[in-house]
Amino acid sequence: MNESYDGYRAVDLEVRVCSASPYELVLVLFDGLLDELSRTRGHIEARHFELKGKSLEKCMNILNALNSTLDYEQGGELVHDLSRLYDYCLHRLVEISVSLSVTGIDEVIHLIGQVREGWEGVHAARR
């Protein structure tokens, strides 16, 4: 059953990416990160440590991808603030990997959720 769901998610993601604008691609990254953070939380609670490690690695890869999309030349102080926030979230995920802190995951989910909301607002304003 889980394999069927994973297959569906992969096809859904491919369709979303193929039809997305650059702004929508960033939203796809945020959504993927938030989904994976939730999965990480579940793995910690269920004590599935190998799966927790794989989920954290995916989260870190997505955060690095988000950080690499920042335009330092045109973004000003906001871009530097976002970069610092992404770095903070990466640092927290490393700590969480050892501490298994569900509270820490919740903090990162909250921070990324706020940034996603702001990005969605930027996207809506540009339409």
Rank of each mutant, 00 (worst) to 15 (best):
E73R: 05
L90M: 10
V108Y: 05
C18Q: 15
D71W: 10
L85E: 06
A125D: 05
L85M: 13
F30D: 03
R41E: 00
L56M: 03
R9I: 02
V11S: 12
V108T: 01
E24Y: 05
H110L: 06
L27E: 03
E14N: 01
C59Y: 03
T103V: 08
C18V: 02
S97I: 00
L37V: 00
D12I: 01
W119Y: 10
L66N: 15
V108D: 13
T103G: 14
N64Q: 15
Y72F: 13
I109Y: 04
V122M: 15
V17N: 09
I62T: 06
R127K: 13
D71S: 10
L93T: 00
V28A: 11
K52H: 08
E3Y: 10
T40F: 13
E3H: 11
R9Y: 11
V11I: 11
R41H: 06
L51I: 03
K54C: 08
D12W: 00
E57A: 14
S55R: 07
L78V: 11
G32A: 07
V122S: 09
Y86V: 02
D35C: 07
V108P: 15
V26Q: 12
R41S: 06
S99H: 03
G42M: 12
L56F: 07
V15A: 11
L90A: 08
Y23M: 15
E50N: 12
M60F: 12
Y72I: 04
R116V: 00
S101V: 00
Y88N: 07
I96Y: 04
I112P: 03
L29M: 14
E107A: 04
E57T: 13
A20D: 14
T103W: 08
G53N: 06
G76C: 01
R9W: 03
N67Q: 14
T69A: 08
S99Y: 03
A124Q: 05
I96M: 01
G7P: 14
G75Y: 04
S101W: 01
A65F: 15
E107S: 08
V122F: 14
T69H: 14
R16C: 14
L51Q: 13
R16T: 04
R41I: 01
A46F: 05
L70M: 10
R126Q: 13
R116P: 00
E36S: 08
V79C: 09
I44R: 00
L78Q: 10
L51P: 00
L111K: 01
E77C: 04
Y5H: 06
I44P: 11
E95M: 02
L85F: 08
E14S: 08
A125C: 05
V26P: 15
L34V: 01
Y72S: 10
K58V: 06
Y88V: 03
H80Q: 13
F49D: 12
E117M: 01
N2R: 11
R41V: 01
C89H: 03
E3G: 07
Y88S: 03
T40Y: 09
H110F: 07
H123M: 09
E120D: 06
V102M: 04
D87S: 15
Q74M: 14
L13A: 12
L66E: 10
R126Y: 12
S21F: 09
I109D: 06
L66S: 15
A125G: 02
G32F: 00
D35M: 11
R84A: 12
G104C: 02
E73A: 12
L37R: 01
L90G: 12
E77N: 04
L82P: 10
L13Y: 11
R9C: 13
I96D: 05
L63N: 03
E45L: 14
E107Q: 05
W119H: 10
A10L: 05
